[in-house]
Design a protein around this nucleic acid. Structure first.
Lengths: 137, 137
DNA sequence: ATCCCTGCAAACTATTTGCACGGGA
DNA sequence: TCCCGTGCAAATAGTTTGCAGGGAT
């Protein structure tokens, strides 16, 4: 229903591809690449075309329902948008991506405003390294 | 000579494509995409193939001489690597990418180590927004 | 003399777009 | 009924790879 409301509020139609893509995204607890999303969408409904999935992802991003990240060297990944700023922790050993929160990001935004005169809209922080599990190896 | 030393120290040969790509990168004050680098390399020596440029960029990244960033929605951009952590400020209005430094990034690294048990190797911060010039519009 | 690098061309992956039809409002 | 959104297929863009010859060491 969150999806339906967001779509209607902006004059967009509620269609099956949009619902299925949204279900796939909200039904996953991790980042998904476009090809992965396309695959999962196909499992639920093989008649939904890949290009439609791309178009839906673009639309959902415009509506701020999902967020695109470019974490690796390959394809973009997508996830439902979080309310607050999130830090992406990418483990170079096992490849797992986790999230982290800290008020320091807000501090950073303030510093950019004051120190560089930059009007900050969004901040993305990515850290590469070793996750707790791979750390002691 | 910095390039030559880095190459020889790791048992790699000093070749023309490697020198030209390095010259192009160090001769620019801004981020360059691979296609841009290929173009600039061609201006200096049209006989250097695009695939070689890709291979050189990959090698230089392994040697930590250059750094790859994925700032926009299109291609990766490359720049000589900086000693300290750098923040990329991407202006959504004019598209210009500038750099910013702040010790807050180190603070962030410490927080990730303590707060999330994550062994931080590198941190990338990107901020989208309005640069000082486009701000008052 | 050895074998690392390169140029070339082809393959690949991710993503975008034109078009005509069909379904949502 | 209207026209937005879709499926389809082809086009694009960026990047990677196999191979054989040439140059750096």
């Amino acid at each position: 229903v969150e999806l339906e409301r967001a779509l209607r509020d902006h004059g967009h139609r509620v269609t099956r591809p949009r619902q299925v893509v949204w279900d796939v995204l909200t039904g996953s607890d991790r980042h998904l690449s476009a090809p992965e999303i396309i695959e999962l969408v196909h499992e639920r409904d093989p008649s939904i075309n890949a290009s439609s999935t791309y178009r839906v992802l673009t639309l959902l991003a415009e509506l701020s329902l999902v967020r695109e990240s470019r974490l690796g060297d390959d394809a973009s990944t997508w996830e439902p948008r979080h309310a607050d700023s999130v830090i992406h922790l990418v483990c170079d050993a096992c490849g797992v991506v986790t999230h982290h929160h800290t008020p320091i990001v807000d501090e950073l935004a303030r510093d950019l405003d004051r120190g560089a005169g930059f009007d900050v809209g969004a901040i993305d922080v990515r850290a590469n390294g070793r996750c707790p599990g791979c750390r002691g190896g």
